[in-house]
Amino acid sequence: MQPEAVELIVLAAAALAFAVAFSPRAASRRELLGKGSVGIVGAAAIAAVPTFDLALFVVLALGVVHSVVEGKRPLALRLRGPVVAVTLLALGAVFARVQGPDVLERLAAVGIVAGLAAAVGVLPYLHPIDPEEQLTSSPVVWLAFVGPVLAAVIVERSQSFLPVDAAGAFGALLIGLGLVNVVWGGAAAWLTESEAAAWRYSFVADWGLVLCGLGLIVADGQRAAILVLFSIVLCRLPLCLVSLEAPREKAVTRRPVNLVVAAALAGSAPFAGFAARLLLLRAATQLFWPLAVVLAAGMLLWLPGSLRLGRSLGLPKGRQAVGVALVLAVNVAVGLYPLPLLLAAHL
């Protein structure tokens, strides 16, 4: 198993432990543990299987299982994302493996990047959401729980069969798609009416940074990607859970805790997102400095959306207050000293 994938599985397990420990309702805790364990096993299987093609079968199986979990969205909507992802990834693999002109290699890169976007649920393949739906059956599972492992595996395994000439197109497509997601996700998290949709778009914006990091072939880009994935799994996901799990108990407030949470979500210093953004800007500067300017401008879009999402937590009390404090502490620790996280991923 590749080290990044192992690390992301451990992070997902930690996020599940957080959800179980700090969920406000006992019934919800049991359900989270059961369904979350299935997700962890699925993510581990994606990373453990030896080939790209076997990973596609695991994604398909996981997609089918997730689509039949009790939820409010129709089956067709829930199944489409994983099936379209597997379709595009498989077509990409076919194009990469056949002999022929260069255009087939570029089509392979398009298929794999589009398949990755469809699997995770970022633009242009946003999975529809239902604000009333539970987190276990919502698209957030793909965005923040299984998606990070899947992205690490797909990007690493596709290098084994993508021709060298297609690697440039692959990176450029990742960066282009990443920028679109940064801008769209950041603006939509700020402007959309629904709170659940705002959380979803904030994940999309973070994924934009991940895609840019994965597309920048220098080491700092990969390091930035793993740090943003960390902040998705162990910052945004737990805070989203706290915000959405107790809708009747919260009121929109502007207390100091809301500002601190907003700072963590926006990737301000000293949280983990800040280190990720610095590394990403450094990587972009090494490769093509105007890209760093565009990324820096895009990063400003996190501020209004994060302030809104920070306020949506209300005033956490009891068990949830402990959970929020723990998330913030872990993110400060990783933001100040990210080296162990990067070393564990061999980056």
Binding site: L54, V86, A90, A93, A96, R97
Partner: peptide, 18 residues
């Protein structure tokens, strides 16, 4: 589910390509 099953069978062929 029928289409998904057929997709699974055809993905195996993709694994054999090349």
């Amino acid at each position: 589910f029928t289409a998904t099953g057929l997709l699974a069978l055809s993905v195996a062929l993709a694994a054999g390509t090349g």
